[in-house]
Design a protein around this nucleic acid. Structure first.
Lengths: 198, 198
DNA sequence: AGCACTACTGAACATTTGACCAGTATGCCG
DNA sequence: CGGCATACTGGTCAAATGTTCAGTAGTGCT
């Protein structure tokens, strides 16, 4: 759909952003291609926008938005044992997981965070020791895998509502279901995970 | 290390970029926080840069570069059945997986690609149907999980060298080890995977 | 008390930058 | 042939924007 020239322009914008961290201005694009006029750039950008290859923010400096530019979410990685919901203390993050948020089907302004799994109680669900699970802060539903704080201890289990009562089911025959005796606080719902092979 | 106010500023910049695709200008930050002077923003940005929380491009509109903005690798996702090594035909990618390359311990200029897993033959290794496995193009070693083309068919199995002969071991008792009768081409070594919960 | 750092107000300035108008030339489609 | 899209030259203009100077106030440190 795009002409050869339009592809070149688009590619330059992408490359420039990757290498300099900043979208190029029209004049920078002009200089790179040796155009005698900025208008040449302006026309190309208009054409690219019309074809949906990018979005322009009118009147805004370097206001090009590339479709693939922002699909990167910095997910804070908390320790193995979360002391509470992440919104409270962003500082405690052990690191960040940069990943495409469109990959996980997140809702509009949904908070996400990540935990490093300890133990093998969810092995049956393919979640192993050391995996980074991505958790979303949303209301839990029946049979969701949830991060829960039960009687002061944090665990990752499958939530089952049994006759109105919540039960945390492990996915490993060596472990037993957990029924909260005192308090049960759901801190997040599993939406996916990342494993790095050691 | 950052003060509370500086965190707020930094967070706003990150949020603004995620939601609008564009870095906010100093005046936009000013308006958001209700400052009476742009200089308040300028000072905060200077402080943030001094502390290494971001980089400023002097004289450039919206010239803030967030440290975690670009260390993102676009990994091409190929189909479930790879017809060959990805270097040949980059075009065939079904999509892209944007992820922090530092997460996986990749070697300097190592090629990576991604495959969607079909089947449950590696269930014992925690790799399930539908998972996106990340593969690196590097020489396979004993007990690596590899993507292999054996007798014309593509599979993901653990490579075991048995008395000098390569054997592809599944991690599921319902499947049997594969010994190549004709050809065995290793197309990549498993370095990790990503699962999106459905 | 003196100094450094944070956290601003208020104003002015020079650039940077997007937008726009007027033209030219080429190629394609009906 | 006219109309439309591409691909530019050349130039102007106003708005957007980073930068800087001068000054005030609070806090913590030595």
């Amino acid at each position: 759909m795009l002409t050869k020239r339009q592809q070149e322009i688009l590619r330059y914008v992408q490359t420039h952003q990757r290498e300099h961290g900043v979208i190029p201005s029209q004049r920078e694009i002009q200089a790179h291609f040796g155009f005698a006029s900025v208008n040449a750039v302006d026309c190309h950008l208009a054409a690219l926008e019309k074809k949906g290859a990018l979005v322009r923010r009118p009147g805004i400096a370097r206001g090009l938005v590339l479709p693939h530019a922002h699909p990167v979410l910095d997910i804070p990685i908390f320790g193995t044992i979360p002391a509470g919901p992440p919104s409270a203390n962003e500082q405690m993050a052990d690191g960040h997981l940069a990943i495409d948020p469109t990959l996980f089907k997140l809702r509009p302004r949904e908070e996400v965070y990540s935990l490093r799994v300890r133990g093998d109680s969810m092995e049956g669900a393919g979640i192993q020791d050391g995996d980074l699970v991505v958790m979303a802060c949303r209301p839990p539903q029946h049979r969701d895998i949830v991060g829960a704080l039960v009687d002061g201890e944090a665990t990752l289990k499958r939530l089952v509502i049994n006759r109105g009562k919540p039960v945390l089911m492990p996915e490993n025959p060596n472990y037993r279901p957990i029924v909260a005796t005192e308090e049960l606080r759901i801190q997040g719902v599993y939406v996916g995970h990342v494993r790095v092979h050691r």
